[in-house]
Structure formats: C-alpha cells, structure tokens
Write a protein that binds this DNA or RNA. Sequence first.
DNA 1: ATTTAGCACTCTTCATCTCTGAGTGCTAAT
DNA 2: ATTAGCACTCAGAGATGAAGAGTGCTAAAT
Lengths: 346, 346
Amino acid sequence: MDSRKLKILSAVVDEYIRTGEPVSSKAISKLENINVSPATVRNDMALLEQLGYLEQPHTSAGRIPTFLGYRLYIDELINPPDLSDYEKQRLDSMLGGKDTPEELLIQNAVDALAEVTQCTAVVTNSVPKFSVISKVEVIPTGKRLYVILLITSNGSIKNKACRLEFDLDNEQLEFFRHYIEEHLNGISVEELSEEMLEKMVTAVSAYMVSLSPLVLGICELSEDLRQQELKVSGSEKLLSCDELDKMEVVKFIEHKNGLADLLEETFSGIQVKFGAENNNFVIGNSSLIVSKYRKGNKDVGSLGVIGPMRVNYKKIIPYIEYLTQKISYLMSDDEDIINKDTQADT
Amino acid sequence: MDSRKLKILSAVVDEYIRTGEPVSSKAISKLENINVSPATVRNDMALLEQLGYLEQPHTSAGRIPTFLGYRLYIDELINPPDLSDYEKQRLDSMLGGKDTPEELLIQNAVDALAEVTQCTAVVTNSVPKFSVISKVEVIPTGKRLYVILLITSNGSIKNKACRLEFDLDNEQLEFFRHYIEEHLNGISVEELSEEMLEKMVTAVSAYMVSLSPLVLGICELSEDLRQQELKVSGSEKLLSCDELDKMEVVKFIEHKNGLADLLEETFSGIQVKFGAENNNFVIGNSSLIVSKYRKGNKDVGSLGVIGPMRVNYKKIIPYIEYLTQKISYLMSDDEDIINKDTQADT
DNA sequence: ATTTAGCACTCTTCATCTCTGAGTGCTAAT
DNA sequence: ATTAGCACTCAGAGATGAAGAGTGCTAAAT
C-alpha cells in the first residue's frame, strides 16, 4: 500500500468528518496536498474499498470510511497538532490550581473537556478506592440508632445509619471504637476486603453479638468508596447527533450501562473504541476516546469523550492528552514529590 | 349542551387517545353506546368544533380534541374505574411495607408508577425540609479540618468538611457543640433561615472568629436538605412518543427545568397540566398528571406522570390516586397515630 | 507502467402529476 | 330531530421524468 493511497484514505476520513457526506474523487483531487486527477483518486479509492477501508452507500455515491478505515486512520495516519499556548492557558484556568480539591478538579476537567470539544465528556474517579481510611466514627443518634462516618485520606466522607438490636453503653461503644481504630486506621479502601470485614464481624461478635450491624455498615460504606465514581458532562450533545440512535442515547444517558467498566479496561495512552465493538456499552455509531490519568504512580481514572464515529479526532485527542497530563500533575501529592526528593537525597 | 354531545365529545377523546388518529363521525356512530347515525354525529361534532372543544387537522379529516376539549374531558367527563385487587396487591408489593425507609419508599413509588403506566413518572420529596434537626456533630478529622454532621428526624444525614484558620482546643469545641445543640436542636429545617444562621455567625464569632466557617457549613447542609429532591423514572419513555418534540424532551431530561416548582405549586387531589400552558416547563404537547402525598397532616411531595396529551388518563389516574394514598399511609409516623389516639383519649 | 481525459452508465433526489379514499357539509326526505 | 344521499375537499401514495452527482471502464497521453 503506497503512501499516496494512505494519504487519500486520510483525506477521505478528514473530509467525511468535516462534511458528514460521502466523499467524491473530485473533492479529494481538489485538495491542496493531492496533485492527481479525480480518475487516479478513483482508482485508488476502488482499491481502498477492496481492502475494506472504504465503502459506498450506493453505486453512484462517494466513499465513506469503514470501521477498519477509521481504525487505520486513528492508529496510523492521524497526526494531531499541539495545543496552542492560549488553549493550554484556557484549560488551566478552567481546572483550577494545585489547591483545588480532588473531586472538584475531576469535575472541572470533565466540564472543561465537554466545553472545549463541544462533545459529551466522561470521567471516572477511583481515587477513593486507592486512598487510606483516616477516621471511622460511630455516633449514637437515637434509640438503638447509630451513624457511622468513614473518612479517607483523600477527603471522601461517607455516612450511614445503622439500627442495632440493643443500645450500647459507653464501655461497649469505646470498645468498638477502639477496635475499629486499631484495625482499620491506615488500611486502604482497596485492601478492605470482605474477608477482612468478615473476620472483624466474628471478632466483634465474640465480644457482643449485636455489634455486627456496625461492621456490616462499614462494609457497605467501603463498598460505596470502592465503586468508582462516573461523571458525565454535556450529555445533551449526544442527542443532537443525527448519526446516533436517539433511543440508544437516552438509554445511555439514563443508565450509563457498562461505561464505567469500559473506561476501566483501557490501557495507558489515548485509546479509541467504537460503540458497536463493545458488548455492554452500545451506542450504534459512537466512538469513545479516552486516556487514563494517574495519581502518584497509580492509574486512578479515565477521562474521555463520547461522540459519533465522525468526531474531530484531531482536535479532541490533544485536549484529552493535555488534560490527563495536567490533572495527573495537579493530583500528585506534595508528599509524593517530597518523598521523591528525600529518596534522591539518600 | 345536551348530554349526547358530551357523550360524543368523551367518545372522540377516548378514541383519539386509543388510536392517535383523527376520529371520524362514522367511527363514533359505530360505538356501542352511541345509537345515532354518522350524520347526526357530524352535526354535533360541528357544534363541538364551534364551541372550541374539537378541531380538524384539515377539511376532510376527522376531529381531534383541543386543549379545551381535553380540559372538559378530564375535569367532567372522565370516570376512571377502580383498580382491581390484583393491581393493588401488585403495587403494594412494589412499594414495600411500613418499615421501608422513606427515601426508598419514594423511589419505589416512582419506579412502580413508571412500570405500571409505561410512562415517565416523577416525584418530589420535601420530607427533609419539614423535618426537625435531631443532631449536629462536629468531628475533628485532621489539621484544622472538621467534619460537620447534620441529622434530621426523618433520618436524612448530611456531612461536610470544613477547614478552619486555627485548630480548636477542647474547650472551644465544647463551647461550639453546646451552642449549636442549644440553638438548633428541635428546629425544623424549614425554619432554619439564613437570618437565623447569620445571627449565629455573629454570636459565635464574638466568642471566637474562626468558628464562623462551621456555621456556614451548617448553613450549606441545611440548604441541601431544604432543596427538595426530584426523582424521575423511565424518562426514555418520553422519547418514544412521536407527538413530542425530541429536542424539548431531551432538554427536559437533562435539566428538568421548572418541574420541581411546577410540582410544588399543585393543589390537593389529582391535577392535570398541559405543557404549553406553563411558562417554565414546556414540552409542547405534553401533559402532566400529579397528585400530592402527605406525611401526617402536611403535603410533603407530589407524584405524577408525564406523557403526551393523549395519554390514557383513565388508566393512569387511579394508579396515581392509589399510590399517593398508600405512601401517605406508609409514611405516617406511628407517633402520629399514637398522638391522634392520645388526643382522642383526652 | 502510470496517469488522465472522455464517456456511458447508475442511482438518488426533487418536483410534478394523478388517482384514490376517507371524511366532511349541505340538502332534502323521513 | 334525525337520516340518507351526494358533491366537494384534501392528504397520501404511486408513477413519471428530468437533473445531477459520481462512478467504472477504455483508450490515449505521459
């Protein structure tokens, strides 16, 4: 496959993304960097069709890219330009500085991405899952009624009411608080497995049976924390794409089925997934462009854009790359940096 | 206006709701309870058109109801049948029993309504707004970092982290706790106005300036509680109505603009509002059927259905009536009942 | 061997036209 | 007051045809 054919394929995808109409040989040959006649382009296009990269909606129409065509375009041919300094500054100001709380940072990022791309943006946040339990409180609030408060090192706070079978006296409450503090402080949410909590249930029950609902409550709270959050911004944009099936889009907006998992299973670097290629998350002609961001040296979430197959990849990819880099930087704990420094010193 | 004409109007609306097509005089005269010829029906229909209850899409088409026609139909002519025992049982099992937590109850109700009507169902919940603050906790969780916990009598729990300028010593913390307990315990969320909190800010600041963020935190939490929740179930159903403008529906699904207010401003009993009649909440040909439910002797929320103008009112209204009654019953505190008993005794 | 001009061919799209059938309003008879 | 009968209207479905965009193929040019 010679380079002219690749150039033509690339041009067809570009044009199709720009106009949304099947692309004719004439239109391609008119382009600046193509210096051959329509007939030549036609010949090449016929070949690209044979190879499965292009297709014709009907005999006398221009070509549109196939899945394979998009794939090749994205993986090999695309060459997205860098962001201008102006755009970088704009994104920076939308994100906020180093002192922005994590959750707000993530929210800002997804909002900014939706704004600059004019597409639906999505983000997951597993930071709580990787953070450490810093405080567990048990507060009596009524007859046999207790509220459990779980606070993690990243500032997530969760609460839950529990009803016990008996009221606890001070001694019992103190015992439980002490026990919990001893066993949970400094444990990461991820480590806080069911087995571990089961052991705690038996241990605590040995002291007093009716304490077990409290442990179960903690279990549920940690479950909540472990469940990564999923945020979506600008979902109305999806609806205005005629390429996408309205019903499918609405179902997606309602339930976000499978999206969290799909975002999780990506590797590092920019990735593009097509709706029809996935089992769970299916919006017919959709395309998902994502990249992971990190905290310290752990992948803690994914940021991306959902649009029709013919979104402007060239424009979107640099935005996602810049934003994921930036939030990774902004989220890096000062401690991480200090640690690195100290390590370097020793 | 004689009773036959009303019968014909009613029949036209019924038929239009059933078929979605303009209704012809022939179709009406064929109906069981109409024993006159098409010509007679035509004469009556012409009159009903003059009076503004019916209209013709074009000269040689059947009639469809106007706004006025629907209004009359709903307010006077409709005679919804009772639910069967089977249906009541079905709803009961979907709702859950007397021990179901309020919030889940509301969620179940809106889901059940969406399920049985196959329409989009909505519900508001102002229970937290009318409940009483039963506990406020301030918990130190780190350097100058405190978590405020606000618990209300209905079991809502809200928390928020606050960063102060200085750390509090035990005495200061105790002072604040005591102050808060004295001034807020037993106050309803609704009463907890901004003025009141402002007074508290000044009072507390007199003792120690840096305490004010805590009061502000409480202020925000009560704001959260005051904001009635709005739940929507089955919003995809709206999308499949061709009668409704897709763009308008999508905007509604995204923002739910004005819906909460609209639901709030209803009176007791079943009410039907047409989309175009309202300023804020406008989905062109939509119809909103709602009724309030109560807790004790206070209206605390509205439950209803949104659909096209030609939804099956006869089927939907009994469902809403039954559900609002039932949740009102299920939410009535045992204390309320006991109170009534004691009052009866004295 | 590649590229290109030329041309016949295909297929969509749009406008125009006609025909059919459903439904009405009016008139005159019951 | 009701109804049968009839002329009239109008939307919708098909049919027809012209225009235009785009292709594939062939033969000539480079």
